[in-house]
């Protein structure tokens, strides 16, 4: 049954957030897929995208390549419902951005685990395994819902 290659699922109310098992995760809701040792492709998890919804604007505040500190502010994102500053998931070197997204960020919505990737990051930081990320989501879900409600009221 529980094939190691099957994606995990985290239920956000009725919505199934898919968590693929072929990559690792950061606590600030990004996936990191290893391209070569210590070089990762980074993108939003479906959990992030569900909260953001229809992203239409993405902008980076740093220029690649550049070194990053953990939680450094590196960009801004905006959708019709939400906005956020974007922070580095780890200390490392930002190698390149996905330039296609700057003209049209819709792949973030339509293919967040593929063509909607954000940037490549060289890091040796230790990330969460898929099951650990799901546990992290589970733990924070109530707080997240309260935060969203608090801002809507």
């Amino acid at each position: 049954m529980n094939d190691a290659s099957d994606p995990l699922i985290f239920m956000m109310g009725q919505y199934e957030a898919i968590i693929p098992q072929d990559r690792v995760y950061s606590s600030n809701h990004l996936w990191l897929k290893e391209l070569e040792p210590d070089l990762f492709r980074v993108g939003f998890t479906s959990y992030s995208v569900r909260l953001l919804q229809d992203v239409y604007f993405l902008e980076w505040r740093v220029e690649a390549p550049t070194s990053l500190r953990l939680k450094q502010e590196i960009g801004e994102i905006e959708s019709s419902k939400a906005l956020s500053t974007l922070y580095s998931p780890a200390e490392g070197e930002l190698v390149q951005f996905n330039e296609h997204l700057l003209d049209d960020p819709t792949p973030i919505n339509t293919d967040c685990y593929g063509t909607g990737w954000l940037y490549d990051l060289r890091t040796s930081a230790i990330m969460k395994r898929p099951s650990e990320y799901v546990a992290h989501l589970d733990e924070g879900w109530e707080k997240t819902q309260n935060m969203l409600k608090g801002q809507i009221n």
Partner: peptide, 27 residues
């Protein structure tokens, strides 16, 4: 700046959109 009070909002208004920055790594 994304925080309304720093960006020049009058008083303590809420942002115009939901701010997810804490979720994505803000403090």
């Amino acid at each position: 700046h994304k925080t309304p009070a720093i960006a020049g909002a009058e008083g303590e208004v809420a942002g115009l959109k939901i701010d997810l920055s804490k979720l994505f790594g803000g403090s």
